[in-house]
Design a binder for these strands. Structure first.
Lengths: 217, 217
DNA sequence: CTTGATTCCGAAACAGTGTTCCGAATAGCA
DNA sequence: TGCTATTCGGAACACTGTTTCGGAATCAAG
């Protein structure tokens, strides 16, 4: 029987797409090499030829996830309100996590113990971080936020990640209203608190609480 | 040969302890039933007799993690500064995550796809949440924070979780100074922002950004 | 068109998991 | 002392990741 397609053109994409589909449809536990190969209408060794390893496949899924998230960010358009734009980015992040929950798990809370993120993997996340840093910088230039842009961006991203994690785990409550209320409360409070530069942050903290280097165990 | 110990007294504890040790020493990927049984100096079926399932074993590890975290919280003593006390709780949480990183991963970012948290599992986390709610309530009564205590507690916990996740992933930077700076910045800003009740949170957000029910995909 | 080398896929084989079955040894009780 | 019930141990299954090898399809040359 004739080979259905060409030699090795879009096979890699087909396998990657199949892996993402299985991940989204059946969860992380169902992502086996056999299933991926079957879904991509190819064989197991082909997967190994293309990705070397299952960890390699997962790594590519990881990259693809950040590409897709970055693609969503690029679709957002700017207005003249930097704070609203920043919140729109957060909302986009939130909806991405909601709609691709398993993929987000791979990206942010590594359900695969065999994925050992190296510098290269961390680099993939830098575009997302840089995007947020850019929006934060706009806010700072507009006087809506203060302090260092990178620091603030990390805080914002951490808050978004933590909230997304809690939402996915069902810890933020069952009703949509309470979940939304807590998202709003969190970002409004944090952005309000960041309106002015933290004046004596180091002093205040060292004085008032042990959030410094290594608290005694 | 005589059996070394009694029949079934501390065997369950021994197995659980062995699982925790393997988890801490060799990572989540090394937590196999065979290894646990060998480390506990028992047999594989004994593990299944005691926990029914590997998921059951992991679930007990999960519970034990929250028990230990709660134990740390109980060791903290109150001062007359509610805000400092709340920050001390956060610092304790942070050090717990740092010192038990793999266990924290099991508790908060489920690396085990086969652990399907039901209401019972969620209940185990409620003591931790209630503890934080209590501290937040003290802050509210002292006028240091405003708004609803439960809402604020969720925000605080989400922020702590997000920061811990980013710290564990190495996203907060490599130098201790920058990591600490970002923790301090985050909590100072958020707590400052929560000093007064968010006056028109709903209105402001609905007006200024799409952080509400379901943003269009 | 035939033929050959090359490249790739497919089935089967290995090691290591989670899980279970059955025999055997032990503890408690009469 | 003997019985019984319970629990532990070794060995067996099904399924995973991973590799190896044989064969088929592809392209180029004669």
């Amino acid at each position: 029987m004739p080979r259905p397609k060409q030699r090795t053109p879009a096979l890699r994409d087909r396998v990657l797409r199949a892996a993402l589909a299985i991940l989204a449809d059946e969860g992380a536990g169902a992502l086996t090499t056999r299933k991926v190969a079957a879904a991509a209408a190819t064989s197991i060794p082909a997967v190994y030829e293309l990705f070397g390893d299952k960890a390699g496949l997962v790594r590519e899924v990881y990259f693809e996830g950040f590409r897709r998230l970055g693609g969503r960010f690029d679709e957002l358009d700017h207005t003249d309100d930097p704070r609203a734009d920043l919140l729109a980015v957060i909302a986009s992040y939130r909806s991405f996590v909601r709609e691709n929950s398993v993929l987000a798990g791979v990206m942010f809370s590594r359900p695969f113990a065999d994925l050992d993120p190296s510098a290269k993997e961390l680099g993939a996340t830098s575009t997302v971080r840089k995007f947020i840093v850019g929006h934060v910088r706009r806010c700072i230039e507009a006087g809506v936020l203060a302090s260092d842009a990178t620091d603030v961006a990390h805080v914002v991203l951490a808050l978004a990640q933590g909230l997304a994690l809690q939402e996915a785990a069902g810890w933020l409550g069952t009703s949509k209203a309470s979940v939304n209320r807590r998202w709003m409360l969190a970002f409004n409070a944090t952005l309000d608190g960041l309106r002015e530069a933290q004046p004596d942050a180091r002093q205040r903290l060292v004085r008032s609480s042990p959030l410094h280097p290594c608290a005694p165990r």
